[in-house]
């Protein structure tokens, strides 16, 4: 408490140091790329110019950066929503009736260990267009959401269930008032993890899947042309969107789960 003032200036200091670190990094990057004059190390300004070109003129096929972003996010969104719609109720159901999950483990568990990316070739053969991507995202996001929900339902504090039970509450009331609120934070964490895996999957699916639009295929196109600066733009955009979505999740978690003791963020 006595260090309150110090902590305040420390925070400002941290911010300052970060700005300094970033400047030094960009400066070093510029100098090294100037000296080396390498095709493989573009200067920060080349990258910035590529970004502006991609926004205004689009890529080699004239598809703008905005279009790539739109396509990727739309695919993610469709698959992710489908994963939530299926994963959350199924997780709650199988959590409430452990016997169902315990008896179908022999089918569910092996599928869980097949990486979603390994499904891409199968999906290319069996499905077409948009459904390919939505299916892969669905598969990638489903298991974290489903398993997170299921384990959470199983670990609801038994005393919390006994409280309404001791007043003679009906099963549905207990599910509504105790089970669902208590699992909600874990469902959210599952959704956040699922969203992350969804991003990994969409990248791979777009690189392998054969359509011309999407951030994944965009950076692969430029890899074939050995245009590092455009690849970097793509990667930075991917990172920024990932960061932004993660921040939204954290913001909502903080808002909705005020009652939680502490929220672990990683």
């Amino acid at each position: 408490m006595a260090n309150d003032k110090n902590a305040g200036s420390g925070k400002l200091g941290t911010f300052g140091y970060n700005a300094l670190a970033l400047s030094i990094f960009i400066l070093l990057w510029t100098i090294v790329s100037w000296i080396s004059e390498s095709l493989f190390l573009p200067t920060p300004w080349t990258v910035l110019k590529s970004f502006l070109d991609l926004c205004t003129y689009g890529d080699v096929e004239g598809i703008s950066l905005g279009m790539h972003i739109f396509k990727s996010t739309l695919r993610i969104f469709a698959g992710f929503v489908a994963a939530c719609i299926l994963g959350i109720p199924l997780g709650i159901l199988m959590g409430l009736y452990p016997r169902v999950y315990d008896s179908t483990k022999s089918v569910i568990e092996p599928i869980r260990f097949i990486p979603p990316v390994a499904w891409i070739p199968l999906v290319i053969v069996l499905l077409v267009g948009f459904s390919r991507y939505a299916f892969i995202i669905w598969l990638g996001a489903f298991f974290p959401i489903f398993i997170g929900t299921l384990l959470s339902v199983r670990s609801v504090n038994p005393t919390h269930i006994d409280v309404p039970r001791s007043f003679g509450a009906k099963r549905l009331y207990i599910i509504r008032k105790i089970v669902i609120p208590s699992t909600l934070p874990d469902i959210f964490t599952g959704m956040r993890v699922g969203m992350g895996i969804g991003w990994d999957c969409i990248m791979a699916a777009e690189m392998i899947g054969g359509e011309n639009e999407g951030l994944g295929v965009m950076i692969l196109k430029y890899a074939e042309l050995i245009r590092i600066e455009d690849i970097m733009v793509g990667m930075i955009v991917i990172g920024a969107i990932g960061f932004f979505i993660n921040e939204i999740f954290i913001f909502v978690e903080r808002r909705v789960f005020k009652w939680k003791e502490a929220i672990v963020i990683s």
Binding site: T159, H160, D162, V163, S166, F167, P181, S182, W259, K260
Partner: peptide, 14 residues
């Protein structure tokens, strides 16, 4: 009937 539990029984989200 009403029951007061041995374990802390406040519902954290209420």
């Amino acid at each position: 009937v009403s029951f007061v539990f041995q374990e802390p029984s406040c519902i954290p989200w209420l």
